[in-house]
Design a protein around this nucleic acid. Structure first.
Length: 807
RNA sequence: GCGGACGUGGCGGAAUAGGCAGACGCAUCAGACUUAAAAUCUGACAAGAGACAAUCUUGUGUGGGUUCGAUUCCCACCGUCCGCACCA
């Protein structure tokens, strides 16, 4: 058919957009835009395989949003970049034996080609590539600013260590406790690493959730991840020593039910408190706990293990003596690394006590009927305090207050809020990342690299594989390592760890509007004009890490006077996941969809339209090979209609349907319900073409504008064929529904008798109940059912339903 | 285990301040056009009963409840998917 050839139309408009700079901003454009709208989407890791169909799904949905905003008259800035550093790229480079320095550029050019092909309106003048020294120079600058703000700290932390490869291995390289490469058991080791103190911002990050418009499941995930708990720190005096064990608990009300204490294996007091008889057992246990890799340690289903260390504590309320145990179910990184165990009211403690025959005591009763007898499981519900001496009869909430108050009076407790959130470890003992800009000097210690000396270039290493030295590969380049101390000018050595990829992506959105300058990281005026981001669309898998880190960096920069806003993304929406014929798409299943082939066969517009038609964008959809015919023939029919359209005025009935369609589409697109937007457009085209009628241009123009976000090339083409000579995206053409025309005058409503549909009548908005009943009676079928008994009640909801109760 | 989302024809999915279940599309079948095929157009398409007509009955995971009326609200259960995983 010569009315529509996707290949020609798409090539024509893509090159015209390039020629006219339709989607590009000059520095001046950025500075003078009147209605700035920053439409952001998560930048990809440029893999060697090329764009995944899931990427295309996400970017199309985000592009639809951007193009829609543009049709509403905004100046939409929609940049794209590449998150090319990181262990992903490095592992792949190792696998194929190519240096990542050589691999990344060709991957990026392939991605760029594919991204252009889907016809998204990216501003290719403002891209970022995290591996470009002109970018990571500023990533290092971000680190220095956080350092200045006192948010960087070096301390010991555990890493997974493979004793056979003699190297640090990342969590994702540990498969069921074994090293991915050599299958030997991985253990943990303590090494010095750099941390960003995100926990300083735990409460602020939590509070900020109130003021941002994000997908609720994303906010829930952040809320849970930050994990605020209110409770108390309580000191338990150690018997026979002038020292105590401090625990954190959210249930001080259950203190009288505490029957033993537990220390984490790494707790400093373990060694000090262990007596001679127990020493051998305890040391063996601690050693064994240490050998577990970081992942296996977190396995909940493992049976509880542990051993008594030969010491006792005194319960500060009851004065009872309680044995002190060591067990790996207590984690050193949370709270104080020690707990008071209340087996009667904590499931984990109950399991442990049952295993080791420790006493289980009830101190909370739901009511008087269950305060006696043997406990068969931990009771974690609400109730009243029992077996708690002077506190008996108090509710859980009252008990918490009363007990903490009493202990506070004796300086044995303080109210305490704790978070599960951990500080962000950014050290990676790897090659493919930005070197952390620190120089070690024997006299001055760890000194940050002066801003003027940035970037600290990542040297090209031919041997970038982690080796058995235990150090990062950069340590092998001794020439690179040795430098002068910036403070005293003496001999210095560079930090050889690189930073986490998440640091690259924690600030990239700030850089996009600033890429016209290499002088500074952030161009103050541009940042002021374009940020915070108006809309961010991306995968839900980044709900906690990336999205939290970006918020943290933004808040820290706000407090440090660099930014004048504290939240980076006003609005965030998580898109859904695409499946294929009901199954997850994955390489291992062998059901991947090759985007290039699909576009060659159907054209980018059809592919875009189909992907958006599959289901609600925020929920994802199921891709089925045959389904693409529908959207494809829809576009063809539309092109055909334009070719045949007359100049005359539109039919009144059709125009009414058109305004109802405009109304529905405008509502649904705001909610990202692209699937129903498309079905509404299809439905309208069916009305326009009904019975093979000839349509008019007036009936078609708005539908082409509304289709433009989904099928931009064809929309441009048809717009031109209808006699317009500027781009459809240039002048805020989004149609507005005329409420008078969109209004439905007469409509069919159902008539029910005893809740069962028996017919329908045609009414207007102001038809009275009596008139409706008369109309209903004139329907033979309804009348039969009405005559079966006596009318007891009539429910008439104008415009909705008429229901008659008869018996 | 905890948290979140969800369960509707052969399939993807519509419809929830409670009001005609199955929009739109795929697949399938029949017809028109065609020498033929493709494309296009027209029509049928939840299940069962029925003179295969009118019509009736059943039907939104299962079982209860509220209501004139429930896919939508409430309770219990079953199942699927996704997070987090011993956070005291």
């Amino acid at each position: 058919m010569d009315t529509y050839s996707p290949t020609e139309v798409e090539a024509k408009w893509q090159s015209r957009w390039d020629e006219l700079g339709t989607n590009l901003f000059s520095r001046d454009d950025l500075a003078t835009a009147e209605k700035p709208y920053f439409n952001l989407m998560m930048f990809p890791y440029p893999s060697a395989e090329g764009l995944h169909v899931g990427n295309i799904y996400a970017y199309t949905g985000a592009d639809v949003w951007g193009r829609y905003q543009r049709l509403k008259g905004h100046d939409v800035f929609q940049p794209m970049g590449f998150d090319a550093f990181g262990i992903h790229s490095e592992n792949y480079a190792l696998k194929v034996g190519v240096n990542p320095n050589d691999l990344i550029p060709s991957n990026i050019s392939n991605f760029t080609r594919q991204l252009r092909r889907i016809g998204a309106m990216f501003d290719w003048n403002h891209t970022v590539d995290t591996t470009d020294p002109n970018y990571y120079r500023w990533t290092q600058w971000v680190f220095l600013k956080l350092f200045e703000a006192g948010l960087v700290e070096k301390r010991e932390a555990p890493v997974n260590w493979c004793p056979s490869c003699k190297t640090v291995v990342a969590n994702e390289q540990v498969i069921q406790g074994l090293c991915e490469r050599c299958d030997s058991a991985v253990e943990q080791r303590q090494i010095e690493q750099w941390f960003l103190k995100i926990t300083n911002y735990a409460q602020r990050l939590l509070d900020g959730i109130e003021n941002i418009d994000w997908s609720s499941r994303t906010l829930t995930a952040q809320n849970n991840w930050i994990g605020r708990s209110e409770g108390a720190d309580i000191d338990f005096p150690i018997v026979g020593r002038d020292e105590s064990i401090r625990v954190f608990t959210t249930r001080p009300d259950t203190i009288c039910g505490a029957t033993y204490m537990v220390l984490a294996p790494e707790h400093p007091l373990v060694d000090a408190l262990t007596n001679d008889e127990q020493r051998e057992t305890v040391e063996a246990y601690v050693e064994q706990a240490k050998r577990l890799d970081l992942k296996a340690r977190q396995y909940v289903d493992r049976p509880k293990t542990g051993t008594w260390i030969g010491a006792y504590c005194e319960n500060p309320i009851t004065g009872a003596q309680m044995p002190v145990w060591v067990s790996d179910y207590v984690l050193i990184e949370y709270g104080t690394g020690a707990i008071m165990a209340v087996p009667g009211h904590d499931e984990r403690d109950f399991e442990f006590a049952s295993t080791f025959d420790l006493p289980i005591k009830r101190v909370i009763a739901r009511d008087s009927s269950n305060n006696a007898g043997l406990m068969t499981e931990a009771y974690v519900g609400d109730g009243l305090l029992v077996n708690s001496g002077e506190f008996d009869g108090l509710s859980v909430a009252e008990g918490k207050r009363a007990i903490v108050q009493k202990l506070e009076a004796n300086s044995l407790a303080t109210g305490q809020v704790r978070y599960r959130l951990h500080d962000w470890c950014i050290s990676r003992q790897r090659y493919w990342g930005p070197p952390i800009p620190i120089i070690y000097c024997d006299d001055c210690g760890a000194v940050p690299v002066p801003e003027a000396d940035l970037p600290v270039l990542l040297p090209r290493l031919e041997q970038f594989k982690p080796d058995d030295s235990g150090d990062s590969p950069l340590a092998r380049d001794t020439e690179w390592c040795s430098t002068a101390c910036p403070e005293c000018g003496g001999a210095g050595t560079r930090e050889t760890d690189v930073s986490d990829t998440f640091l690259d992506s924690a600030w990239y959105f700030l850089r996009y509007p600033c890429t016209d300058t290499d002088e500074v990281a952030l161009d103050v005026d541009m940042v002021k004009k374009w940020l915070p981001v108006n809309s961010y669309i991306g995968g839900h898998e980044h709900a906690v890490l990336h999205l939290l880190y970006a918020r943290f960096v933004t808040m820290a920069f706000h407090d440090h006077g660099i930014l004048d806003f504290a939240e980076p993304f006003e609005k965030f929406r998580a898109h859904g996941i695409l499946s294929k014929e009901g199954r997850k798409i994955s390489k291992s299943r062998g059901n991947v969809i090759i985007p290039d082939d699909l576009i060659s066969e159907w054209g980018a517009d059809t592919v875009r339209l189909y992907l958006m038609f599959l289901g609600p964008f925020e929920q994802g959809g199921d891709y089925q090979e045959s389904g693409i015919r529908g959207p494809s023939s829809f576009l063809e029919r539309l092109a055909l209609s334009v070719a045949e359209a007359s100049d005359g005025k539109g039919d009144e009935q059709v125009l009414q349907a058109m305004h109802r369609t405009i109304d529905k589409v405008s509502n649904d697109i705001e909610q990202l319900k692209y699937n129903t937007v498309i079905s509404a457009l299809m439905e309208y085209l069916n009305v326009v073409r009904e019975g093979g009628r000839t349509c008019s241009k007036q009936e078609l123009e708005p539908i082409i504008v509304m289709l433009a976000p989904f099928a931009p090339h064809l929309a441009e083409e048809l717009w031109e064929r209808l006699g317009h000579n500027s781009s459809i995206f240039e002048s805020g053409l989004w149609p507005e529904a005329d409420p008078e025309l969109a209004k439905v005058e007469t409509f069919e409503i159902g008539v029910q008798v005893n809740g069962k549909l028996r017919g329908s009548i045609s009414v207007t908005a102001d038809t009275s109940e009596d008139d409706a009943m008369t109309l209903a009676r004139s329907n033979e079928r309804v009348a039969t059912h009405l005559d079966a008994g006596e009318v007891r009640k009539v429910i008439y909801v104008p415009g909705r339903i008429l229901n008659v109760v008869v018996n």
